[in-house]
Design a protein around this nucleic acid. Structure first.
Lengths: 189, 189
DNA sequence: GCTAAAAATTAAGATATCTTAATAAATAGA
DNA sequence: TCTATTTATTAAGATATCTTAATTTTTAGC
């Protein structure tokens, strides 16, 4: 567990064991059962979650009562509702475990303390945020110009493990396709 | 000019005049005429641009020869092709001035030096990157579930100055609508 | 002010995707 | 193993959006 954190930090700057320990002390492990909510709509998101094991989805419910999945999160990803976490406004989205999921939670309070005590962390999170930005932009660019069918094929090719672990109707939601139409697309193929 | 930078930096941490000057020394001003390219497809993006005055678009050209606008950039925004800048791979996109545009350029080399000499900058860019992430996610969430018509109305409401400064067919491209269909939508309204 | 180029509109027909509603298949819990 | 619940499929009709191509309007350069 501490190893995972140590190697994570050292990808972007050099951290001594003491520094890793210091950062680790700001984290607390927590387990969520399948279907538990890591974050509820309306609550302020006070944590970042580093997923050690499991799978979560971030979604909202629109005016028609439909769930729209915005992201999935899996092992070794940080997940949070950025907007709520940073602005401290109530979350418009839910984060829910799709499998039993173990995370390390990092509160905003602790994160600010960590930045103060270990300034090098600014660099780590600056870089990981940049990487996230790239990932999101890349996804957008691909997805915007692909048809529903192409999006699905791309998803299956790039993220086959999700196809195993996530029900099809949730993948449809993530790809912004109705489950019925996705079903048709799969038949045609 | 230096003022703009000083107040920009001090939004996120406290910088002395000396520190601001030090950062400023890493920047060089440059002017692009309307239609000039700040970045060409195929080139590695070696700079971030802080726009002092003017307007640019970031776009690519798809397999059918159509231009797809991904972002606009205006005064007081940083613009760059993140993916190419960070990974140092050839850019898949163009950045082009839509008006005569004055920028401060910051090379990757200088940025790394600046991070070394003024570590507080890590914090500034960590925070601005987070803000960008929020902005992109917010845009995605809104846009994904809006119809073409709603997207256009939202754009007009939120960014009226763009409607003045950018030709309609480019707004259509940004909103992922054909110019013909946007024209119909405007008529119906 | 005139002309060429760029931008916007119009309209008809084509297509992708959605909606609804019913049914079938798969899965989880007792 | 059985039953209830969840998930996936099917099909018909509706709709949003695109494609193409021609026309009009606006803008920029001389």
């Amino acid at each position: 567990m501490k190893n995972q954190i140590h190697s994570y930090l050292n990808r972007y700057a050099s951290f001594s064991n003491e520094e890793t320990n210091a950062f680790f002390s700001y984290l607390s492990p927590k387990t969520f059962l399948k279907k538990d909510f890591l974050l509820n709509e309306g609550d302020v998101c006070k944590h970042k979650f580093f997923i050690l094991d499991g799978l979560v989805r971030l979604f909202n419910i629109d005016s028609k009562g439909h769930e729209n999945i915005i992201h999935f999160g899996i092992e070794h990803w940080w997940t949070t509702n950025w907007e709520s976490f940073i602005t401290e406004k109530p979350s418009l989205v839910y984060i829910q475990a799709l499998e039993d999921t173990t995370v390390l939670t990092l509160s905003k309070e602790n994160l600010e303390k960590a930045y103060m005590n270990i300034p090098k962390l600014e660099r780590v999170f600056r870089i990981t945020t940049e990487n996230m930005l790239i990932a999101i932009e890349r996804k957008n660019e691909f997805y915007i110009k692909m048809s529903s069918k192409e999006r699905y094929e791309f998803f299956v090719k790039e993220l086959p493990s999700f196809v195993q672990r996530v029900p099809q109707y949730m993948i449809a939601s993530y790809l912004d396709i109705t489950p019925e139409y996705l079903s048709e697309l799969r038949k045609k193929k």
